[in-house]
């Protein structure tokens, strides 16, 4: 009987570790329940986000401070992003959000440059100043156009 008790306890420990691993993965990696979600959300509208997707990083000075939670179309010709910003990160009301690329062909991310304001954005606020993606074709077009005008 003692032998069986020992086996039972070992099995109990095994099952516990297994379930712990499952719960850990579900909470840390999947977005189950409210435990994995923290911080606050901001809105931002862009003319062109260049294919940024949900999950893309939001960076201030190269530090990840949050991520893009949702991408949708706003109105006829505008992209609306919902950003989830980590707890404790404050963004000024006059901050500029711009779509950038890591390296030349790397991932797209959202860069936030702080403004000079003393006031900070709150949950649900919108980042007014946005800069769309740098479009190589547009740049070239602009260069040729400006060259023409000279």
């Amino acid at each position: 009987m003692g032998e069986y008790k020992r086996i039972e306890i070992t099995v109990g420990i095994f099952v516990f570790i297994g379930i712990l691993s499952m719960v850990y993965m579900a909470l840390k990696l999947g977005e189950v329940g409210g435990l994995g979600v923290s911080g606050y959300t901001l809105q931002a509208k862009f003319d062109d986000i260049g294919g940024i997707r949900a999950g893309a990083d939001v960076m201030i000075a190269g530090v990840i401070v949050g991520r893009v939670e949702e991408v949708s179309l706003a109105g006829e010709d505008e992209a609306a992003l919902t950003l989830r910003i980590n707890e404790g990160v404050r963004i000024t009301t006059d901050a500029i959000a711009s779509v950038r690329t890591k390296g030349i062909i790397g991932d797209r991310y959202l860069r936030v440059s702080q403004g000079a304001d003393e006031e900070y954005l709150q949950e649900g606020d919108e980042v007014e100043e946005t800069e769309s993606v740098l479009n190589l074709e547009d740049l070239i077009g602009k260069y040729i156009f400006e060259g023409d005008g000279k």
Partner: peptide
């Protein structure tokens, strides 16, 4: 962060 961003509940299921 990448890991948390890319792995969805569906993947885990």
């Amino acid at each position: 962060a990448e890991m948390q961003a890319k792995v969805t509940t569906e993947d885990i299921n």
